[in-house]
Design a protein around this nucleic acid. Structure first.
Length: 451
DNA sequence: GCCGTTTTCGGCCCGACTGTTTTCAGTCG
């Protein structure tokens, strides 16, 4: 099996264990292992040969053994047995909003449902509402979730999401109660596809902001409306979340909710290693009672600086090596977005045609770019992924010319199969070119803003 | 399952919100 296939198996194991009620930390160990494997630069076969797999943090005895078995034999008895013990329909139920492993288990135990169809029927027969821990609202929510599963589960093209996001951000900024506002999440990280929209607002009087937000045009459903947090669902299935925080917490909240999750975990670990505790509330001494004593940061730059890091642009915060790259002298010339000469960043694809870091650096140099990030698309891997190399390189050329005297940042290329919509409406090449078009547009806009 | 100048046990990020409860469990991010 390839690295990618093995990573998929580890992720499957984590999901199945969740449904079996395993220790959450054990589950996390498998998920971490899968992610580590996906982002591994070295050749897996070589690592196994050298017996060096266990030297990588996160791979202990048990994981090494399982990975080696999968690599050599292509199957794993432990996995096969685990898979047999869980109905496939049960796994699918995780896609229903509001349902997690525990509730699914409870439903299965009480009603014997093993498929989404059976669960839907149980809701129609009003069997769910009487269960302990469930009620009428839960039943309605599940039924609604099943009905809209397709729309809710799908990710939305960045540019379509932008059409919804921009008016909201403008509207928020125009409210008198709002001191600062920004989008966050995968939209701010400029992923090709975003799962939902996140907005962070700094305000001392949240209530009117919350009320304005849930009353947006096109809102189909208000799924949460608390004092500082609200969620709405639009007709398209796109969900938007708003969080209002006190102005002092704005930078921390913005960083936290921009993510990614993996990036945040690494940042928190980094803070802990310095005797500090980082959260959306602030950065405090680890032993301090509350975030009242938080260090102050009036920008994200300041947060990174407090952790001895150079600023990491949102587009690069994927937990794929950007933090190491931002350490001290890691990339002295790459201080912030505007200082970048060019950045070649890529989400992990771990495809078989993946280029090495060296190859990638070389490819970037050929284009006259600085290279930073975790990337795995070289010319060779374009071909391996069926991309039209000429068209892509034409686009790179356009960017290169635009950037002749100006710094910019980019975040391109996502070659991951998961980036293709279920209906196949976006193929790899289109995904890449769309991203490049976006980059060109943003370079244009940065020119017009600064000159 | 992983990890360790608090190392072989006992942590592992943590808070908002909801719906169900009557003080909390589950989900989510």
């Amino acid at each position: 099996m390839t690295k990618r296939e093995i990573a998929d198996v580890l992720n499957d194991i984590a999901t199945l264990m969740e449904l079996k009620g395993e220790n959450p930390f054990k589950i996390r160990a498998y998920s971490n292992g899968a992610r580590k494997l996906e982002t591994l630069d070295e050749d897996l076969g070589a690592l196994i040969e050298e017996g060096a797999l266990g030297d990588i943090p996160g791979f202990g005895k048990a994981l090494v053994e399982k990975i080696e078995t999968l690599y050599r034999e292509g199957r794993l008895e432990f996995y096969d047995k685990l898979k047999e013990s869980v109905e496939p329909g049960i796994v699918l139920m995780l896609e229903i909003p509001g349902l997690g492993a525990k509730k699914i288990k409870a439903l299965h135990k009480a009603l014997g449902v093993t498929s989404i169809e059976a669960l839907q029927q149980a809701c129609e027969d009003k069997l769910v509402a009487d269960l302990k821990g469930f009620g009428k609202k839960s039943q309605e929510k599940i039924a609604e979730g099943i009905k809209n599963r397709e729309a809710y589960g799908k990710r939305h093209l960045w540019w379509r999401a932008r059409a919804v996001a921009e008016p909201i951000l403008e509207g928020l900024l125009a409210l008198p109660e709002v001191e600062k506002a920004s989008h966050a999440g995968s939209f701010r990280r400029k992923r090709e596809h975003v799962g939902d929209l996140d907005f962070i607002v700094a305000s001392s009087t949240p209530a009117p902001v919350m009320d304005w937000f849930v009353a947006q045009e096109g809102v189909k459903e208000v799924t949460a409306h608390g004092e500082t947090k609200a969620s709405v669902r639009f007709e398209s299935g796109l969900q938007a979340d708003l969080r209002v925080v006190p102005p002092k917490q704005f930078s921390f909240a913005l960083h936290h909710f921009t993510g990614s999750k993996d990036h945040n975990v690494l940042m928190r670990q980094r803070a802990l290693a310095r005797g500090l505790s980082l959260s959306e509330w602030g950065l405090k001494p680890a032993d301090a009672e509350s975030f009242e004593d938080s260090l102050e940061a009036d920008s994200e730059e300041a947060i990174f600086a407090l952790l001895d890091l150079k600023f990491v642009p949102p587009e690069l915060r994927e937990g794929l090596g950007e933090i190491e790259a931002a350490e001290g002298a890691g990339f002295p010339q790459l201080l912030k977005v505007g200082d970048l000469r060019g950045v070649f960043h890529n989400h992990t694809t771990a495809s078989d045609g993946r280029a090495s870091l060296e190859e990638m650096t070389e490819a970037a140099q050929e284009l006259g770019w600085e290279y930073w990030g975790v990337a795995d698309h070289s010319k060779a891997s374009f071909q391996a992924n069926g991309l039209n190399e000429t068209r892509v390189l034409d686009q790179l050329d356009r960017i290169e010319k635009l950037n002749a005297s100006k710094a910019y940042t980019t975040h391109i290329f996502s070659g991951n199969e998961t980036d293709i919509l279920p209906d196949g409406s976006l193929d790899l090449e289109e995904s890449v070119l769309m991203r490049l078009d976006y980059v060109v547009a943003s370079v244009h806009s940065s020119f017009s803003q600064t000159e």
